[in-house]
Design a protein around this nucleic acid. Structure first.
Lengths: 221, 221
DNA sequence: AACAAAATTTAGGAATACCTAAATTTTATG
DNA sequence: CATAAAATTTAGGTATTCCTAAATTTTGTT
């Protein structure tokens, strides 16, 4: 088995995976926005992926796309590469969690299976990346996630930050400065129903967080 | 300064650098062979590199190409990436010297300046890669090399292996099995004038090596 | 249910980097 | 020094993946 997919194809598959994790199909526009490619280009590429030798996506006009089994495997492979790389850049080269994304984004497409295995073994086969996101297993299954978005918690509820789903450097630096990192214990103190702000206690600090932030932090309770 | 060159361009520049290290210009055919690309494709690409905004190569029909200052800088950057990566794959992930080439070949085009600096620092700014080849400095100068090809030595002469210029996996494994690795002390015992074979003492073994091998091993005396 | 807005696709193109076949230029040899 | 062989370039194409403008389909409102 040689290298099977282009960088472009891998990026599409990875993005479709992320957009369909909720069970819905991925729309052309959503893909275009995430990939920073025009909508017509996305339509064209999707058609290609759908008519590939083993089809990588399921597609019907105006209905969005979903991954086939083949497409999902390929997507999970790329995601595994990405998350292992993030973990490894942080652990061995001192990158901070807000710096790793871009680097991993480029490396994920070019590392060999051998390289993947070596870094996984060197880190003791980690199950989560520095943001707390689950790393697909070596046999390309995504382990089940049981966390709840912080935005769904209400006063009195508490838990531990499991995962922060964000790539934005500035947001990540901000969260880190507040101690809002995986492993941190939090407790919801107050909720404002109209603006969806949550008042949250982290360590000895108390902060007020908007929906933009609370929807990206996932809690294990 | 963003990413400036395509992978293809970087491969051309690196290869032209290697073919012109002896002071001569690189021929279309030599490039085609090394890059595994057809000669017409090489001609086309060379024209592009020659008419780039800051020209990367000097080119006159039927005369071969040489690098401009810009082109040389770019080539040295890629070579620095490649050799730092080889060193680092060997040192931190346990790759052997015959396994690193392909991996570095792909990674060299996608790592950031930041990544380059981090691995260089992590290794204490090495000056040679695992094959003993010189690593261009951070300011993109190639340090002077003072070694002599083993093929130029004659009985009675001795020295230390400085560098092995080979990418072939099988050859590298063979050399390693004989102890012919950088740092090894060698002594020439005999020379056959017609076939250019050298009888060489390495450690407590004595081996006979053909020109194909002796021309790739470089000795510091 | 009709129509405007939004989403999506079609149509037509461009850039990059390859290729083969054929023509040309250089080089080496009888 | 003429000419065959080798090297190189020209000509004409292909595949990939992106683009804009325009047409179409779907969706959400009154």
């Amino acid at each position: 088995m040689k290298k099977k997919f282009t960088i472009s194809t891998e990026d599409y598959l990875k993005t479709i995976y992320e957009l369909t994790e909720n069970g819905e199909s991925a729309s052309t526009n959503a893909l275009a926005q995430k990939l920073k490619i025009s909508a017509p280009s996305v339509t064209g590429m999707i058609k290609k992926l759908a008519s590939a030798k083993p089809a990588l996506v399921e597609y019907q006009k105006h209905q969005g796309v979903t991954l086939t089994r083949e497409g999902k495997r390929a997507a999970l492979e790329v995601i595994r590469h990405h998350r292992l790389l993030e973990a490894w850049l942080v652990q061995t080269l001192g990158y901070s969690w807000d710096e790793v994304h871009e680097e991993a984004e480029r490396l994920e497409h070019v590392i060999s299976e051998d390289f993947e295995q070596r870094i996984a073994a060197a880190m003791g086969h980690p199950t989560r990346d520095p943001h707390g996101e689950l790393i697909p297993t070596a046999d390309l299954k995504m382990p089940p996630e049981d966390s709840t978005p912080l935005s769904a918690l209400r006063p009195e509820q508490s838990g531990t930050i499991q995962c922060v789903k964000a790539a934005d450097t500035d947001l990540l630096r901000y969260l880190e400065s507040l101690g809002l990192i995986p492993g941190a214990a939090i407790e919801v103190k107050d909720y404002s129903p109209f603006d969806h702000n949550l008042t949250v206690k982290v360590g000895r600090k108390t902060v007020v967080l908007g929906l933009n932030v609370t929807s990206k932090i996932f809690i294990a309770m």
